[in-house]
Design a protein around this nucleic acid. Sequence first.
DNA 1: GGAAGCAATGAATCGTGATTCATTTGTTTC
DNA 2: GAAACAAATGAATCACGATTCATTGCTTCC
Lengths: 204, 204
Amino acid sequence: MPYRRTPAVQARLDAQRVTLVDAATRLLAEGGYAACTIAAVAARAGVAAGTVYRHFDSKTALAAEVFRAVVDHEVGAVQAAISTEESAAGRVQALVETFAGRALRSPRLAYALLAEPVDPVVDQLRLDYRCRFRAAIAEIITAGIASGELPRQDPTVVAAALVGAIGESLVGPLAGVEPGDPDTVSSVITLALRAIGAVHAVYA
Amino acid sequence: MPYRRTPAVQARLDAQRVTLVDAATRLLAEGGYAACTIAAVAARAGVAAGTVYRHFDSKTALAAEVFRAVVDHEVGAVQAAISTEESAAGRVQALVETFAGRALRSPRLAYALLAEPVDPVVDQLRLDYRCRFRAAIAEIITAGIASGELPRQDPTVVAAALVGAIGESLVGPLAGVEPGDPDTVSSVITLALRAIGAVHAVYA
DNA sequence: GGAAGCAATGAATCGTGATTCATTTGTTTC
DNA sequence: GAAACAAATGAATCACGATTCATTGCTTCC
């Protein structure tokens, strides 16, 4: 048995993989999918193009992994923010604030995540991403209806609409130009609360 | 002067141009931008690829013309529907119904129009499209506030959010699979009315 | 009818970026 | 140290669709 991959080598390979995903993520955040070529990723990671293929079968596979990692991170942040709130209104507010804050901090990434189409496989992941947010919102609404805080409504449709509303308000402008000011976020919160029928904290 | 373009020839050329735009529109509606290659457009129109370039400088120019035509048509339909209504609530309802009805009838086209990115020039046209809808909604809201029918709010942000909500509800699912049933439309109407603070026709 | 020139053709060319693979470099084991 | 093989390289290849252009076919006008 003249060769076996030692733990040291394995660790280096693992680290290299991480470096690749990281490089791709940064490139995505900087210039969108178009900037995320294999050559660019490899260069950023300090390896040759061919080396990328020792870790990923295809560009799509790399993109999928990047996407999944970023989405998990984003969803996690939102869920953490939600979990500290009790009421439906509080949770929705926390969700929008967290989501919007992060999106405004990395606008290009948010755009790539929410809107920029690319590849059927990645598009499917984007849908999953939206679905996860949708599910989070739907859950809040369902609980709110059950507790009597919110009026009866179709949680799925309302959640989809809110995802759209938030996305449009935040990354819609992005595709154009302006950065999106803080007032926008509070307007969106107000609107979201009104849309779900949480009539209290409204009419700012 | 051994040659001059006669009216008959001009008419044929004009018709050919229309045929090209029409072919591209159908292809767009069937398979999105990816299906809309020069070769496919030419084949559908019954001409050679090179002929396309006698009418359009580039694929982008063709796409832009297609986009503009389709958008004008869509916006026109919505505006016609709005114009027959008096109240803000009635107008919003008409707008959503019209937009949604058309989108559900040509889902692939709606997706291309609302979400599918392609090319900076076309992307800009898409933004214009959204802006026009946004403007239409903002106008309704502004008028509603002025008349006292609606509470004070930021019409621009609310309009953007509604565009997003409508788009997400209707074409979001599309990117995935299902066709989007009629109940969805009425749910979206209810939500839109509630979101703008038109508390009446609500709580269905 | 025929000269003059526009219109149409479609195969060849180009550009872009993913993917391959023969070769070089690095590790492991004895 | 040397055999045996893995990892890394990056130039060459491929794929795909837009774009060009030399050639062929049509119109016009006298």
